[in-house]
Design a protein around this nucleic acid. Structure first.
Length: 501
RNA sequence: GCGCCCAUCGUCUAUCGGUUAGGACAUCAGGUUUUCAUCCUGAAAAGCGGGGUUCGACUCCCCGUGGGCGUGCCA
């Protein structure tokens, strides 16, 4: 059997460090066994998916040195590799199951579903999920309503008793009672497939032999196993990797850690070090080696050596690995790395264009632009407090709004940066000019600096986001915490303004 | 609530029934260095609890406990 593995990111935001982690193990396993590694874009969420995010994910993975044999950008025999371009395939498969009665249209409204859910929670019902209200609608009646273009989804009939069992490569047999699994939606009312359908159909169509993915998928594996059964297909081998964790052991999240791969690039981490580090969480070499290149990782890779405890992503240890690698470089190599990063002619030209009108002596240049080459700035709290005066609540709110805005922005251009600050100033009902000093301090470290938006472009989205988060962190430590209610109110104000997703 | 997954130093981990429980990062102490950093040496630091199985359990089983994930027309 030919080994074929895949990484299947959803392009709904910044490229996530967890994607790289799962990708690395899939890549290594495929290469180790002379197989193929595939990139498939799971853009079935029409609302949240974006082409910009897909581009960023591809760029980020390539920056790390992760390469795939087939994918939306490289092509391949079993494409297309973007699920939005395969909707016809999913539709055909659902129709096939509809004909055989294993799938049925469901006409329940979102409101009814919410009500059912709320009632189940209120009644402390053991079963929580869809009540199968539409499962009993007569076939002819269902057909008629669908033909009449009544809004509907398609659901898969699931067993109501017995157990679903399968072998996980790393965890052995997993047994899940069917009773806890409801009739899953396969096709949404917009005609797009859900993850479950698209994933199974594509893994089969693309001859994926091993599904190596995050632990968060274990609980939906029965749905996938059921789909393979229903289609009469041989399921792939499953291996569920432990999830990366925050220091508090919750699932790695952007609120508590930098999770964007781009942050690590912008903040001066070497791609090979980051990849090396990712190969060390949840995994160890049989000979205890801790420093390695990708080729060495592949050569010795053994899927069964993965450990199952959820590893904390320790940025401190990553930094130390990065330091060691940096120090081991020759000066020429170091220069090369620096140029690849940000210290190059092109960037300097852009800086000079901004700096020239502000220069009195040549000596002004480097101090003036040093913030463009830093990760964390010296504590900006005193400056921010001075700027805010008594209005510290407002200050915190503005930082939060900017944070949320940046998190929503995947395209990072002068237009989008400008637009996000326009939205914040509209939301706060003040002029942009009045709003910006706070962000000059947060991003540039001083109220007086090089132009903010262009600086932000140079720094990159995720580093700017980090600086805002650093500022919030520091201010909170200084006692400027927004109350739970205040934060909630701000959130709903933000949502109502229509900026949020 | 229900279901599932997991459990060794603070953190990442080794150990696949018999070890003084090993390494790495962080921490601390000492040494080298014009400062600092590097570098070297050393120290402190762990088997969640309770039952079994066994001549012998970190290792296998069960029950607790703790953590995580899932329970979406998100993936």
């Amino acid at each position: 059997m030919t080994v074929r593995t895949r990484i299947a990111p959803s392009p709904t935001g910044a490229p996530h460090i967890g994607t790289a982690y799962i990708a690395l193990f899939n890549l290594a396993f495929a290469r180790r066994h002379g197989g193929k590694f595939i990139l498939r874009i799971e853009d079935t969420d029409r609302l949240r998916s974006s082409a910009a995010s897909e581009t960023e994910i591809i760029k980020a993975l390539r920056w790390l040195g992760i390469d795939w044999d087939e994918g939306p950008d490289t092509g391949g025999q079993q494409g297309p590799y973007r699920q939005s371009e395969r909707t016809g395939i999913y539709r055909d498969h659902v129709n096939q199951l509809w004909d055989s009665g294993q799938v049925y249209p469901c006409f329940c409204t979102t409101e009814r579903l919410q009500a059912v859910r709320a009632a189940q929670i209120a009644a402390k019902s053991e079963f929580q999920g869809y009540d199968r209200a539409c499962a009993g609608i007569a076939a002819t009646e269902a057909r008629r309503r669908v033909d009449a273009s009544e809004t509907h989804v398609f659901r898969l009939r699931s067993p109501i008793d017995g157990d679903c069992r399968w072998q996980d490569r790393l965890r052995g047999e997993i047994v899940v009672p069917w009773a806890g699994i409801d009739d899953q939606i396969l096709l949404k009312s917009d005609g797009y497939p859900t993850y479950h359908l698209a994933n199974v159909v594509d893994d089969h169509a693309m001859d994926i032999s091993h599904v190596i993915r995050g632990e968060e998928w274990i609980s939906s594996t029965p749905k996938h196993v059921l789909l393979y059964q229903t289609f009469g297909w041989q399921p792939p081998e499953f291996a569920h990797l432990p999830l990366l964790r925050n220091p508090d052991r919750s699932k790695l999240s952007k609120r508590k850690n930098p999770t964007s791969i781009l942050y690590y690039r912008e903040a001066g981490f070497l791609p090979d070090v980051l990849l090396n580090f990712l190969g060390l969480v949840a995994y160890s070499f049989a000979d205890g080696r801790e420093e390695f290149r990708l080729t060495e990782f592949i050569d010795q890779f053994d899927l069964d050596r993965i450990s199952l405890g959820g590893p904390v992503f320790d940025v401190g240890k990553l930094r130390e690995f990065n330091a060691r690698r940096l120090r081991a470089l020759t000066i020429d190599e170091l220069q090369e790395r620096l140029q690849q990063w940000r210290l190059n002619q092109n960037v300097w030209t852009r800086i000079l264009e901004m700096a020239q009108p502000r220069l009195n002596q040549l000596t002004d240049l480097v101090p003036m632009s040093s913030f463009l080459f830093a990760d964390r700035l010296p504590d900006t709290t005193p400056q921010l407090l001075r700027q805010a005066g008594d209005e510290t609540t407002q200050l915190m709110e503005r930082l939060r709004l900017a944070q949320w805005e940046i998190e929503q922005t995947t395209e990072w251009t002068s237009e989008t940066v400008r637009a996000l600050f326009d939205r914040v100033s509209a939301l706060e009902n003040i002029k942009l000019k009045k709003l910006l000093p706070v962000f000059f301090i947060t991003i540039c470290g001083a109220k007086v600096s090089l132009p903010l938006f262009d600086s932000m472009l140079l720094l990159g989205r995720d580093l700017c986001l980090r600086r805002i988060l650093y500022a919030i962190e520091d201010l909170e430590a200084a006692g400027c915490r927004l109350g739970k209610k205040q934060l909630k109110a701000l959130q709903s104000r933000y949502r109502d303004a229509g900026s949020g997703a």
